[in-house]
């Protein structure tokens, strides 16, 4: 299948790539660029494990074709820590035990980060519904919500 030249920015780095139009953004990130922190859990946009931020919005990267991400700014789990320091959401997931097997964790952290960037003043009930696109099979969500609320608190008080 013919490949198309595509430029996209991932975690601040520019990538000039040749990709087949049928490849998803998830496949481009994982197989072409080699950023495997973003996970493939269902390939149908239902589990949220592949969530990345595209132009400020959380999207399931298995539902986006790589060619359509041309020229866009993308943040993956690998781009969250800055200057060697973990993002408050990452720290909160560690401190509250918000992850177990860790497979859904990058998607959850990215989805939570996007929500917090948008509005850190949501209630727990609002976060519960806003994070309904991400499936975790290990935690039962109690500690994930604790983590998100803790990070929200930190972001609100330091902003």
């Amino acid at each position: 299948m013919a490949k198309h030249p595509v430029s996209l920015t991932v975690n601040g780095d520019e990538h000039d790539l040749l990709i087949e139009p049928r490849k998803t953004l998830l496949a481009v990130l994982r197989d072409t660029i080699g950023l495997t922190g973003t996970k493939e859990g269902c390939s149908t946009g239902d589990c949220g494990a592949c969530t990345v931020i595209v132009e400020g919005k959380a999207v399931t990267s298995c539902m986006v074709l790589g060619v359509t991400a041309a020229g866009k700014e993308i943040t993956t789990i690998e781009g969250l820590a800055s200057d060697g320091a973990l993002h408050p959401v990452q720290r909160a997931f560690i401190e509250t035990g918000g992850y177990q097997c860790g497979f859904c964790t990058p998607g959850f952290i990215i989805a939570a980060k996007a929500l917090l960037d948008e509005n850190p003043a949501r209630t727990e009930e609002e976060f519960r519904h806003a994070l309904g696109g991400n499936i975790c099979r290990c935690t039962g969500y109690t500690k994930i919500l604790e983590a998100v609320m803790q990070a929200a608190e930190e972001i609100r008080t330091t902003a």
Partner: peptide
Amino acid sequence: DAVEKVTGAAQYGADVH
């Protein structure tokens, strides 16, 4: 394994290439 799991560094089966 806290840090590797929250940074995407942990290597799962499909990450082996």
